[in-house]
């Protein structure tokens, strides 16, 4: 299990990356944290001719709070995002989801953008990006374009990123303080690849559920505040319509079933979180008065 030969380039400046991607196109692979790409190379499932390592590119290491959200550079690791002190306050969903990604030694190298680029159907971060209406900045010599999560994930491990482009950064909008979040996941082991994961956001007037159950791309569903029975009906519809092709029919059935029960639980938890947050806010207001 050793990689096939490749040319290696250590990128110091983003322009070098664009130039080389233009030069090599599909024959090149961007190496970020390597936590997905390196196993693939070791198993020789892919054989890029050139590896473009952006991990030491200073300009891509920025994690910047902006007016409406968080701007995360291509080289920012999942561990860095998780340890950003205001994460739980500003993007609670991400703070809840990130601990489900691999384990600490994987997150210390794996990047958030790399996970989005990899677009594995079982990955938590694409799901979160979709649930949060995040955006991705794609850059090439032709220029920059900003693309919404909904348009970015096209199929399993297939994104809108063209061969001469790379993800320069991801934008994650801050969650509003009257929202509550929940992230629930089930895997065969306690840790490991998710079979089903549900990201839920509850606002004062609407509910949102993003579901990962083995289908190709994350699915996001919005609902008004419905009673539980109606929500269950809605989830039944989602479960039925999921396009799955798991190893076995049992596995498919399991995932459909879990989408309903886990989805409901996630929505309930998110609403409780929202109500808790509101109660705390009310207390603070009371206190100020």
């Amino acid at each position: 299990m050793k990689p096939a030969p490749f040319e290696y380039v250590r990128i110091d400046h983003p322009d070098e990356l664009s130039a080389l991607l233009t030069e090599h196109g599909p024959e090149a692979a961007v190496l970020a944290g390597g936590q997905s790409l390196m196993p693939i190379l070791n198993l020789r499932l892919r054989r890029p001719r050139v590896l473009l390592d952006l991990s030491r590119c200073r300009a891509l290491h920025d994690l910047t709070p902006t007016s409406g959200g968080l701007q995360i550079g291509a080289a920012v690791t999942q561990a860095t995002v998780l340890s950003w002190p205001r994460l739980a306050h500003q993007v609670p969903l991400l703070a809840l989801a990130l601990p489900h990604v691999g384990n600490p030694q994987i997150r210390s190298r794996g990047t958030l953008c790399g996970s989005l680029a990899h677009a594995h159907p079982q990955a938590e971060l694409p799901l979160c990006l979709a649930a949060l209406d995040g955006e991705i900045v794609l850059r090439s010599q032709r220029g920059e374009r900003r693309i919404a999560a909904a348009d970015f994930f096209i199929a399993a491990q297939k994104t809108a990123c063209r061969p001469d482009e790379y993800i320069a950064q991801a934008h994650i909008p801050c969650q509003s303080i009257d929202e509550g979040s929940a992230f629930l996941e089930v895997a065969v082991r306690v840790t490991g690849q998710a079979q089903v994961a549900c990201a839920a956001i509850a606002g004062p007037h609407r509910l949102r559920l993003a579901v990962l159950a083995g289908q190709a791309t994350p699915q996001v569903h919005d609902y008004p505040l419905l009673p539980e029975a109606d929500l269950r009906d809605q989830l039944d519809i989602i479960a039925r319509s999921l396009a799955l092709s798991c190893a076995s029919a049992d596995d498919d059935a399991y995932r459909r079933q879990l989408v309903v029960s886990l989805g409901l639980n996630a929505l309930k938890q998110a609403q409780r979180a929202r109500d808790r947050r509101a109660a705390v806010d009310a207390q603070i207001m009371e206190h100020r008065r």
Binding site: V186, D250, D251, Y254, R256, Q257, V260
Partner: peptide, 25 residues
């Protein structure tokens, strides 16, 4: 596995996992 066990639970309850699933598969 969780999937195997949940299928057994459904079997023990005398019903498919969810009504819709049975139709589907």
């Amino acid at each position: 596995t969780p999937a195997t066990v949940l299928a057994l639970v459904a079997g023990g309850q005398g019903q498919a996992a969810t009504g819709t699933v049975a139709v589907q598969t």
